[in-house]
Design a binder for these strands. Structure first.
Length: 478
RNA sequence: CGGGGUGUAGCGUAGCUUGGUAUCGCGCUUGGUUUGGGACCAAGAGGUCGCAGGUUCAAAUCCUGUCACCCCGACCA
């Protein structure tokens, strides 16, 4: 950008202070406001619209694979939360408690759900009797509360919006298949709709979900090289079922314990979209997910016919794209900047000169490329341009990740990489938690995942030098 | 929760050392001129100086406490 006037001065330069840039963008793009409650945020219409789009698309995909939506209470009695040992140990430090109803102290205090495994299990214990009752593939859209120490809009808030899927199956095979199926549903969504390339793999023992046998994850690289865990899918085995006494009679008339899964993504993904795609002029939203895909900006709208023509175009294309017409009395330059701050994928400029030429000017948000489109061809051109932009955004993010992914064979190498540039580092690991802890303590990087696509960087564990079991992605994370 | 920083109009700020009429810019309102990358002129509105105590004739300013937010760690989706 630099020497032209396309630079918006109101936000911090992205490469100077990434965190401040992020904070500036979420506020200036009118996505969020801070709230009177510590650690909680207000979703303004533009931010919430993005969440609604995410919800709408994912919900459809969930239902395509047989998911049914339910709604559980937001309170969990303490005794219920206590039932699964690993689970409560994982969440106890960050749950919020309700101790009073009116002025009377409750007999048993209630926690505000940090996640709802326990409620689903309690329900399953009462509704599952026969193999004919299985599987149950339930999901709920809700918010959960985790009393985080420090918070940032979308990335970490005390209350956050998410969906949590909870399923229960006849056997391990069925449950494991569901675990992987949902992981793939997520990845399809993130890559094809959010234009964010992912590394998919398995979490280490240390990083897995409290109470799970296996946790599968997909990790995305943000523009500053840090990782964002964007969603997880867990195979829970029979641990919860045993703790909650869930049993069913199988076709062989034997009493058996069912296998479970859970999976979730949160509004944190919105933070990912911002940090993967945004630039110094603000947000850049992938067309597939953008609340407004096309912003029509009339030029010299006071001149007879300009506004009419703009409205006519709006009317013509509103069946194929989400379109807005900015007929406010701001100057065009102001509208351009505003449109860019909000990351609207395409803007259409239409003024007297265009009307005379029978065309409009279409400008891509990501490249600022100007495309002159005959009015008669708008309907066919807009989807084509958006499709190209969507692909370009994905490829740009992929290129960025590849350019910032390194391999290391020794701790010195790893240290050098982390000192000079942030990014993902591929390194071999023995599988021991001691090495994992040591790397985290010494370098501040955590194991992001054991990727499904393995590479042999060397034979030995980067930390202890013993025979390596697998290759792991290491990075600083949000 | 540890370390650092900041709180003055919607936003950004001056004033604080050395106590005494609340500063400027943007934005907002009205009218006019403008309109292809954040226009201009004129008039106007807007403040319990984060909050609570204390010192003082007098506190944005000094003292104590507290809260919120931001950054860096630790924890997490």
């Amino acid at each position: 950008m630099g020497n032209d006037k396309n630079f918006v001065q109101e936000i911090t330069n992205r490469d100077v202070d990434f965190s401040q840039w992020y904070t500036d963008v979420v506020k200036k793009a009118e996505m969020v406001d801070y709230s009177p409650v510590r650690g909680c945020m207000i979703y303004r219409p533009y931010g919430y619209a993005l969440w609604e789009n995410i919800q709408g698309i994912l919900d459809k995909k969930f239902k395509e694979v047989g998911t049914e939506n339910v709604y559980m209470p937001m309170f969990i009695p303490e005794s219920l939360l206590q039932k699964e040992k690993d689970h409560i140990e994982g969440f106890a430090p960050e749950v919020a408690w309700v101790t009073h109803g009116g002025s009377e102290e409750l007999q048993e205090r209630l926690c505000i759900r940090p996640t709802s495994e326990t409620l689903f299990c309690d329900h399953y214990a009462r509704t599952v009797e026969s193999f004919r009752d299985l599987p149950k593939v339930y999901n709920q859209w809700c918010s959960v509360v985790r009393w985080e120490k420090t918070t940032r809009p979308f990335l970490r808030t005390a209350e956050f919006l998410w969906q949590e899927g909870h399923t229960i199956h006849r056997d391990e095979k069925d449950a494991r298949e569901k675990t992987m199926q949902m992981l793939e549903v997520y990845i399809d969504f993130v890559e094809n709709y959010l234009a964010m390339p992912v590394i998919k793999g398995q979490k280490t023992e240390k990083e897995k979900f409290a109470g799970a046998i296996n946790t599968y994850t997909f990790e995305c690289m943000m523009h500053d090289g840090k990782a964002l865990q964007s969603g997880t899918s867990h195979y829970l085995g029979t641990g919860f079922a045993e703790a909650f006494g869930i049993k069913f009679t199988d076709s062989d008339n034997k009493l058996k314990t069912p296998h479970q899964t859970s999976w979730g993504v949160s509004a944190r993904m919105i933070g990912g979209i911002i940090m993967v795609h945004g630039d110094d002029s603000g947000l850049i939203l992938p067309p597939m997910i953008a609340p407004v895909q096309v912003n029509i900006i009339p030029i010299m709208q006071h001149i007879d016919g300009v506004l009419d023509k703009a409205k006519e175009i709006q009317k013509e294309i509103r069946d194929i794209v989400r379109v807005k017409l900015d007929d406010s009395d701001n100057k065009p330059g102001w509208k351009f900047s505003q449109s860019e701050m909000k990351g609207i994928p395409l803007r259409i400029e239409i003024g007297p000169k265009d009307i005379e030429a029978g065309q409009v000017v279409v400008v891509r948000r990501d490249t600022r490329e100007k495309i002159f489109v005959p009015i008669s061809e708008i309907k066919s051109e807009l989807p084509r341009i958006m499709e190209t932009m969507q692909k370009d955004m994905y490829n740009r993010a992929l290129k960025h990740r590849e350019e910032n992914t390194y391999s290391a064979q020794t701790m010195e190498e790893l240290e050098n990489i982390m000192n000079t540039s942030q990014g993902f580092v591929k390194a071999m690991w023995c599988g021991g938690i001691e090495c994992e802890n040591k790397i985290k303590e010494n370098l501040g990087v955590t194991s992001r995942c054991i990727p499904f696509e393995q590479e042999k960087v060397s034979d030995k564990c980067i930390c202890c030098g013993n025979t390596a079991k697998e290759m792991v992605y290491w990075a600083k994370a949000y």
